[in-house]
Design a binder for these strands. Sequence first.
RNA 1: UGGGGGAUCGUCUAGUGGCAGGACGGCUGACUCUGGAUCAGCUAGCCUAGGUUCGAAUCCUAGUCCCCCAGCCA
Length: 566
Amino acid sequence: MSKEKESVTPPNFIKDIIEEDLKSGKYGGRVHTRFPPEPNGYLHIGHAKSICLNFGLAQEYGGLCNLRFDDTNPAKEDVEYVESIKADVAWLGFDWGERLFYASDYFDRLHQYAVELIKKGKAYVDSLSPEEIRQYRGTLTEPGKDSPYRNRSVEENLDLFQRMRAGEFDEGQCVLRAKIDMASPNLNLRDPVIYRIKKAAHHRTGDKWCIYPMYDFAHCLSDSMEGITHSICTLEFEDHRPLYDWFLDELGVYHPQQIEFARLNLSYTVLSKRKLNQLVQEGHVSGWDDPRMPTLSGLRRRGYTPEAIRTFCDKIGVAKRDSLVDVALLEHCIREDLNKRAPRVMGVLRPLKMVLVNYPEDQVEELEAVNNPEDPSMGKRRVPFCRELYIERDDFREDPPKKYFRLAPGREVRLRYGYYVRCVDVVKDPDSGEITEVHCTYDPATRGGWSPDGRKVKGTIHWVSARHAVPAQVRLYDRLFTREDPNDVEESQTFLDFINPQSLVVLNECWVEPSLKEAQPGARYQFERLGYFCVDSRDSAPDRLVFNRTVPLRDTWAKIEKAMKK
RNA sequence: UGGGGGAUCGUCUAGUGGCAGGACGGCUGACUCUGGAUCAGCUAGCCUAGGUUCGAAUCCUAGUCCCCCAGCCA
């Protein structure tokens, strides 16, 4: 193969580094990455960026990517999370093959490495309290000072560390620290803690251990043991890189290189585990898979496809500057995907009864409708039609504004795949004045939606047969927050103050065409003229259909109307 | 008043001394049995000030602004 631009993804600085390494033979031509989640929460779209990057790079350069759980903190982690993470990565479309690892698999070796460090005089057991350690650390502008325990002998340290492991001390009583430099301007190098006591059962190792390695120690060594070449992480670890390198150099082991990129921020949502967790715990959403959540499980339940998410991750690129990606790009990606694949159906969300006054009372017709104009291979179906229909309330205006092409008194529109109909009467509730029915005449010559005399209508509206339609609940989802960046709030406010009260609107009296009766959980459709919807995988039942709106169709009319109001 | 990073259309992102390009969004128009899709076009940007150079987003100098770091979290 030549070296022309044949890559499937756009260039970025990490690919540049990899290509240089490949050229120089730095890792013998290998590319081996890893995706290292901590199982303390559900994966979200920000993780998808990292997953696509790590697995994608491996794919593109003929390398490998491991899935490794960074499970060094039993207090926060749980199997529920590891199961969900595995499911989400697989759903996204990536395969870790035989390479499913856990940092906890390495606890024995990590412990040996710690002992080795002690023997080299590069680590010591500190008996300062957590509070004292903090005070001794100094501040951003002042150096720290050495712990009085810093110069314990190797023998004493070995003995103490052994007793830590044996459970002789309480949590917080002592820790193992690397002996680096308490005056370093990089706080990470001021004798970082590498092992702490935690008397908590670990979800995989049970009660075998009561001491657990810290991230900085475990991560670089895990990478090293797995033969990782490029250890890609987010920007906040940039300051940790000297430490990553220090451990590997001191221990003289294989040395991968850490590369940092900017994490994803998405407008109108939050992507921090802490905040996502808070939304769940405090009941602002129904769970991690609430369709408003930016979690992969939420997006999946919302109707997003893995393909759309992968496309999105390709489009946002990889760089080092902080950014806030417009959620409109994500929406574009799912529309683009579903436009090609989702079968079209008709459903009425806010029904208004339409009576065709000149249509025979008990006549029923089966009208032919195409399943997807973008893809003829998806075939056609028949939709029942009769005298009484439901149309969308939005599609009728008693007093139509300018540029409104839909139905109004005296106006003629086309019923999609049906007939031309003309509004001849409006029935109202005498008390409320609310319109309860519109009466129309239909033109029998226009069956199928074409007029033999060539006359045109401005609008085409969707409908369902009142006699045949299937009832459904429809959940209209919108962005979870009203503020583009919910993290950016004034003091005295929190991101919770900007939850969008309209982020979920439940419509209980919707009607969908009868072909949807057998719709399977998770199935995605385009409700013509409205948007993309999927059958809710949790709450929908054959006798009680529930649809989630994934994303509305682009709505030119809404834009016009909004502009006119200004 | 420490250290580490980063600044290119409204947003995201290319560019590696030689015409600032793409995508999303927005705005026109064409087409249309979805006001969808599609197609065509337009819009709009190099943080600032100096310098080097025939030529600077790119190199140099000095600023400005933004992000991250004081967990026994990751």
